[in-house]
Each structure stands twice: as C-alpha cells, then as structure tokens.
C-alpha cells in the first residue's frame, strides 16, 4: 500500500517544529516514523502535513546526571539499549528498549515517538511507568513536565496537546532491580502482555515496587495490587506468586483488550504469569533470588 500525498517540512529546532504544527489542524509529527508510516501506508491515516523532527539536534542523545538520566525524544531504541549506565541505573528501561520490535525497528524507532504515539501494546509505556519517569513536553507556551502516571490517557492518547511535542524522558536512578517480561504477539511482535518491573531493595526486602503493564488495557497501566503484594516483603516464590495472583485484580475485565490471539480472560491469565516472570528476573538481577 502507498501513503496518500502530504506536505512535508523538516524542522531544525523544537520551536520551528511547534511553529509548523501550531494552527495546522491536520499536521502530524514524524520521528522515526515506525508507528505513523505503517498507518499511513495502510490508508488508515492521511495527514495533510508531516513535520519531521528527526534531525533536531537538541532532541537527540542520552545525558546522565546525578540521580537521573535524560533521554532525548529522538534517541533511537538501539542507542538506549546499548547504554551501559542505563543498564546499571534503570535496567527496566534498557531491557525494554532491547525487546521492542526487531533490530531494524530499533535502529529507527525513537523513544519520544513511541510514547507520544502511545500504542497500548507497545513496550515502552510500561517501562516508563515502572521507572517513574517524567516526560518533558514543549509547546507554544513553553516547556512542562508530566509524571509518567499522568501521561498515558488511552489508546493513542496522551497528555501531549495538539501543538505540543515530547522533548525527552527523564528516568530517575532508583530501584536498580528491574526487568521486562513480554509475551509477544507471534505475528506483530507487539506485547500481548508485557510487564515492566522496578524494585527498590532494602537488603532482601522490597522497599518499593513499581509495575507497569502493556497490552492489557487501552494504555500502559500500573499494577498497584501486584506492587502491594511484594512491597515490604522479602522477594520469594510466595510473594511473587501473590503478586501474580493480584496482578489483574484491579482491572475492569470488560475494558481489557481482546484480539484473536488472546481473549480478555486469557490476557489476565498471562498478566499474572508474566508479572511473576518479570519479578523473578528483577530479583535475579538484584541478586536476591
């Protein structure tokens, strides 16, 4: 299939990009294009204008600071997955980017493009939630920041306004035990269920747990009952099992995603199993299992 026609502009800076989309009712930003282009090729999306933000220098790159890492929106998955500091300080983010799509997709797809697109079955939303990241957004009125917990609103819907763009993600260096466990859809590779876990350990005890799930609801979702099940406990088969049992307990089954690969009921079953797998992997990484 072939995309419909559109106007195209390459933005040289964030402000140029904002100017270009402001006031245009049907403009889309394009980063790596790995979410948008397939939709345009299938004839489902036909934006009148694309503003290419792929070459904006200020949006590229990973900067490590004391206590957190800033990932520029246009940083490719491949670069995040190869960042040693992130593997040390926020392994859930590093491991998740390593599991997105395939090699070629990771060479093009970007962190900002991913979360702004907010595909419910994509991998990064869960990791961003688990990592307690902050999303930086720029718009006509300047810059603002949104906590991951408030960022994802629904299917392809985020807190980013019409004339705004994601400039980067700030990932705190906390909870160095982290992991991502994913059941990919055998066709698309997207997550049927993906569970991202960040644990802050106090010795063998889980001081804090954040668990984000992909593919289950129509946007990335925290699994608070599972977090509660391990917090304050030593990480063990029992506490992990309890977390698995609790994983889907707060979710409205009616709103759980369904497709030919997995019904809502089975997704919740997988959610339990993959929550356990993610916790086990995180525990092993932290050396407590």
């Amino acid at each position: 299939m072939y995309p419909a026609q559109f106007d195209y502009e390459k933005a040289g800076s964030v402000s140029e990009a904002i100017d270009a989309i402001s006031g245009h009712s049907d403009a889309e930003l394009i980063a790596g294009g790995h979410s948008l282009l397939p939709t345009m090729k299938s004839g489902l999306a036909e934006p009148e204008m694309l503003v290419d933000i792929g070459d904006i220098d200020e949006l590229h790159g990973i900067e490590h600071h004391d206590g957190h890492t800033h990932i520029g929106a246009m940083t490719r998955y491949a670069d995040v997955a190869e960042d040693n500091t992130l593997w040390e300080e926020a392994p859930v983010v590093a491991e998740t980017t390593e599991m997105i799509g395939d090699r070629q997709v990771r060479n093009r797809g970007t962190v900002g493009g991913n979360i702004a697109h907010a595909d419910p079955a994509s991998d990064l939303p869960g990791a961003v939630l688990a990592a307690d990241a902050t999303v930086h957004i720029a718009g006509p009125d300047g810059e603002r920041s949104v906590e991951a917990d408030d960022f994802f609103h629904g299917m392809y819907a985020t807190d980013v306004g019409e004339d705004e763009l994601v400039t980067g993600v700030q990932v705190p260096h906390e909870g160095t035990a982290g992991a991502y466990a994913k059941k990919p859809n055998p066709a698309s590779g997207y997550a049927l269920v993906g569970v991202a876990v960040r644990l802050t350990m106090d010795g063998d005890t889980v001081a804090d747990a954040r668990i984000g799930a992909n593919g289950v609801m129509d946007h990335g979702t925290r699994l608070e009952p599972a977090e509660d099940a391990v917090e304050g406990q030593a990480l063990s088969g029992d506490s992990i099992g309890a977390a698995g049992d609790a994983a889907g307990s707060s979710l409205d089954e009616y709103m759980v995603m369904e497709d030919q690969q997995a019904s809502a009921e089975f997704r919740l079953q997988l959610l339990g199993a993959y929550t356990e797998r993610a916790l086990e992997a995180a525990g092993e990484r932290a050396g407590v299992l």
Binding site: P38, S42, N185, P186, A187, S188, D259, Q260
Partner: peptide
C-alpha cells in the same frame, strides 16, 4: 478477513 496483514497473520519467524 481479520488477519489481513503480517501484523495479524503469524508467518513463523526465526525464533519460532
């Protein structure tokens, strides 16, 4: 047809 592309119809990949 609801498995109308390779995103929905699972042609086996190398790891399968």
């Amino acid at each position: 047809l609801t498995t109308g592309s390779m995103q929905d119809y699972a042609v086996p990949k190398s790891s399968h």
